[in-house]
Structures are given as structure tokens and as C-alpha cells.
């Protein structure tokens, strides 16, 4: 969130401050290791996220954990689950991280937080302008919903939580087939030629379903879907499609300007689609 997901971070901070939610960064957090650490060793793949969670438990014992990344979510949640259900693993992990960790608090993804009734109500109250008629494909990705045992997500094939959040902005979400289809971000470096095709299928299905933009809840999905659209245009002859994080659409509807959330940092020109939707809305306003 500090680097390639700049717009996502700025928009998330904007939305949360508007609704009066304070986010506290885990002190001296470390990388969760996805996807390499657990490919090399099961223990390393759990110890890395467990260290961040144990630090949070020590420094902020009253706070739950939230992450905006699907991969981090899967790893953090697995570490929490392992500590709660496997005593032998807990002993081993605590030894490796050299800290106690009881997994007292919950790990949520950002969509869980936005879907809470009180948060949704607060967002509703802060919407200043509508993205009327903007056709949005909500892309949840794999690990925000799967594996069911770890995430507890109620619907892994056709989830609805992001659709409900986006509807608050006045945008219209489309029904499409690839909501939870894997974009291949895990292998974007080491099997690039294969994974390009994965993200392109997702972009194409969104466009064929009538979407003008795609919205994600993960910086890895967002980057992977957005950064390599040059190849998409060349290989499919189709036009590009902007990809936003869920926070960005909320922030714009709450009144954030393009500069507030660094819309110009997108790899695919992004402001235009939102500006058109704002113009369509009653009392047309500029972004």
C-alpha cells in the first residue's frame, strides 16, 4: 500500500477519515511472505504473518486486524486459524517468532469492514455526489473468499458484499462470470506468459458483460489487472478498461478530487470514466 497501491491507500485513508474511523498501522509490521514463503516452507509461511499479528496483539490488544490485500488476508487469517486450532503448531510458531501469540482478535479484509451495518450507514451519510449509471464489474479475486474454511465467506462463486458497497455510490454493478476467477498475480513474475492470459480473460469478460470499469479489493489484483493492458490491447484488439480499488469509487462519491487520491497514478487513464459518470448525475460536477 506504500508503493504501487498509492491510490488505494490515499482513497482508503480519505474514506475512513470521513466516516470517523481511525486506522492504526501495526508497529513495525513485516511482509507476510505471500506467495514465496509458504512455497518454500509451511512454517515460514505462517511465522511471517504471525509475527505481525503478535505485535498487534501486544501493542493494541483491543483492536481487530484489517487488511486491504487478499493475499495478506489469506496468510494472516491462516496464521490466526492455525494458532487457535493446533496447539503443537502454536508452540512451534511462538518459538520461531520469539513472541507469545494467542490470536484473541479477529482478522478481517477491507470488504468485511465496509459491509458492517454501522460503517455502511456512515458511508451513506457522507456520499455527496453520485456516479450515476457507471457500469462496474466487482472483482473479488480468489483469496478474499477462498478457501471457505479459512475465510468463512458465505458465497465463493457469486459474492455480493462489494456489489452492495459500490451501489452506495449510485454506480450500477453488472452480473459477470469472473468475480472470483484467479488473476494469476501469484505468478506474475515467474510464469508471466501464462498469467497474462488469466488477467486478460477477466478484463474481456468484464467488458463483454457491459462494464466500463473494474473495481477490486486487493492491490495485487489491481496491479496485475491494470499494469499490463498494453499487451491486452495488442493481443485482443480491445480497448483498455480502468481498474479501481473499492475505496477510490467511495472517495470520489464522497467528494475527493482526482488529486486527493492520485488518480493520475493509474496505468490506464482513470479519471475520464468517473468524470463522465459525474457529469451524467444530476447537477453535473467536475471531478
Amino acid at each position: 500500500m506504500e508503493s504501487t497501491a498509492k491510490s488505494y491507500r490515499l482513497a482508503t485513508e480519505y474514506v475512513m477519515s470521513r466516516i470517523g474511523v481511525e486506522l492504526v498501522e501495526i508497529e513495525d509490521w513485516n511482509c507476510c511472505g505471500a506467495t514465496s514463503a509458504h512455497t518454500l516452507s509451511e512454517l515460514m509461511g505462517i511465522a511471517l504473518p504471525a509475527r505481525s499479528l503478535a505485535t498487534a496483539e501486544l501493542k493494541e490488544p483491543e483492536l481487530d486486524i484489517v487488511t486491504g490485500c487478499a493475499s495478506c488476508y489469506a496468510r494472516l487469517r491462516l496464521a490466526m486459524h492455525k494458532i487457535r486450532t493446533d496447539k503443537a503448531a502454536k508452540y512451534l510458531i511462538e518459538n520461531v517468532i520469539d513472541m507469545p501469540y494467542e490470536a484473541r482478535r479477529e482478522v478481517y479484509n477491507f470488504l468485511d469492514v465496509l459491509s458492517r451495518e454501522d460503517v455502511t450507514e456512515a458511508i451513506k451519510g457522507k456520499i455527496k455526489r453520485k456516479l450515476e449509471g457507471l457500469k462496474v464489474a466487482c472483482y473479488y479475486g480468489c483469496l478474499n473468499v477462498r478457501p471457505a474454511l479459512i475465510t468463512g465467506a458465505p458465497d465463493r462463486e457469486n459474492p455480493q458484499s462489494m456489489d452492495a458497497i459500490i451501489a452506495l455510490t449510485g454506480a450500477e454493478t453488472v452480473d459477470w462470470a469472473f468475480k472470483t476467477e484467479c488473476c494469476g498475480a501469484a505468478h506474475q513474475n515467474d510464469a508471466a506468459s501464462v498469467t497474462r492470459d488469466l488477467s486478460w480473460r477477466i478484463l474481456k469478460n468484464a467488458q463483454l458483460s457491459g462494464a466500463e470499469v473494474i473495481v477490486t479489493a486487493c492491490p495485487m489484483c489491481n496491479l496485475n489487472l491494470e499494469m499490463r493492458q498494453d499487451g491486452y490491447r495488442k493481443n485482443t484488439g480491445r480497448s483498455s478498461i480502468p481498474v479501481f480499488s473499492v475505496s477510490e469509487l467511495l472517495a470520489v462519491a464522497m467528494g475527493a478530487s482526482a488529486r486527493h487520491i492520485a488518480l493520475d497514478a493509474h496505468h490506464v487513464p482513470a479519471a475520464k470514466a468517473l468524470a463522465a459518470a459525474l457529469r451524467r448525475s444530476e447537477g453535473g460536477v467536475a471531478i
Binding site: 506504500e2 509490521w29 513485516n30 516452507s41 509451511e42 515460514m44 518459538n95 520461531v96 520469539d98
Partner: peptide, 20 residues
Amino acid sequence: HETQKSESIKKMIERAEKLS
């Protein structure tokens, strides 16, 4: 962007590697 305790994280990873 470096953690303040990158040395301790290095040691932690090495412990995990050894045990694995």
C-alpha cells in the same frame, strides 16, 4: 521501506528455515 527490526526478522526466517 525497511522494518526497524529487520535483523530480528532475518533471524526469525533463518529459524523457520532450519526447523523446516
